[in-house]
Design a protein around this nucleic acid. Structure first.
Lengths: 195, 195
DNA sequence: ATTATCTATAGATCTATAGATAATGC
DNA sequence: ATTATCTATAGATCTATAGATAATGC
């Protein structure tokens, strides 16, 4: 077995931390929560992240965003060349991932961390999540002669937040998240056609 | 001056706590944050809320939800009898209020509080926010012969999350939130018409 | 040898309690 | 008299550090 067949202990820490942070946010998750979930002691986390909680959160968030950048790129590349299919593909990708609560990230998590890192992370989130979706809307609207609302950034962030809402409502609904996503995508597509 | 012309000290506490809690969530806001903002000592908060932080959060959240119930009712009652106008009215109401991050509430804030209170608060949130919007969609779709997607609950939660996304994006955009809301409402309206 | 974990504990922060003092409203 | 605030402090929790011990991978 060559390198990285077995994930490192550090990667396991990151995986668990991502689950917890993405669910409950920076302040609500303690290092003890993460350690307990891993079955190790809280102090042991400092072996992997000598600068502690903030370093771990930044690493977790950055990795998640870079994974989104790549997952988004690949899922869009694989999808048929029509807007509806591409939005469905994006929805499936996002639904396969831990939730990204942009509102909480911006208002709560990010204010706790170092300003320089915050700006960098925000940029990464923008480039990895919002801009790719925005580009899909722009290309789709152009290609399919849809109503250009002029502000595809708003379409992109609304689209993201709808998927987020679906991930929440899965808790209270027996419907499949993909079905809900497709239904809302259908509404948006119709909304962009005609008039 | 009869009762309640001057808001009580307790009401001031609630007002400040709501600003902070709705922005950053239960765990990220400390009693010291609230006291500092009020210009008093942290221990003084226990005069108004003998059971401490949790009691304060529950009171704040419940009040906010009841205010939404009433604000929603009034704003819908005042709006013209067409779906688009009613959605615009709801958007304006929500944009006039502190943000409600449903995702964060469900995943993060609520898990910290007592189970009985949590269930009660969730019910109140459902009745105050989601159900009124759902009812507006149902009546509008019926009245205007729009495409019945069958699941107006999803429309309602998507609508709420779009407004939430707009409240976030105001930080990064020079556009008026009301304009953004109207634009997305227009897309949704078109999406519900025809096919 | 290197990597991962442990125990023990310091120091900071946060919630909460007790009891004293000041401000307010009949 | 009642309401609102204060000081002082206990106790819990949380992050972080130091140094010892165990596990792992050539």
């Amino acid at each position: 077995m060559s390198r990285q067949v077995k994930e490192s202990a550090r990667d396991r820490v990151i995986a668990v931390a991502e689950q917890l942070f993405s669910d409950r946010g920076y302040k609500a998750v303690t290092l003890r929560d993460i350690a307990d979930e891993l079955g190790i002691r809280q102090a042991s986390l400092y072996h992997h992240f000598p600068n502690g909680k903030e370093e771990l959160f930044i690493e977790v968030t950055e990795r998640a965003m870079l994974r989104h950048a790549e997952g988004m790129r690949a899922t869009i590349a694989d999808a048929p060349e029509d807007l509806e299919s591409q939005l469905q593909a994006i929805a499936r990708w996002m639904l396969s991932q831990p939730p990204v609560d942009m509102a909480r990230m911006v208002r709560s998590d990010m204010v706790e961390i170092d300003e320089v890192q915050r700006h960098r992370l925000m940029q990464t989130a923008l480039r990895s999540l919002l801009l790719p979706i925005e580009a899909v809307f722009d290309r789709g609207i152009d290609r399919e002669g849809l109503r250009d609302v002029g502000h595809s950034r708003l379409l992109a962030s609304s689209f993201l937040s709808i998927i987020e809402a679906i991930q929440v409502s899965v808790r209270f609904s027996s419907r499949q998240p993909e079905d809900m996503a497709d239904e809302m995508i259908s509404v948006v597509m119709n909304g962009l056609r005609a008039r």
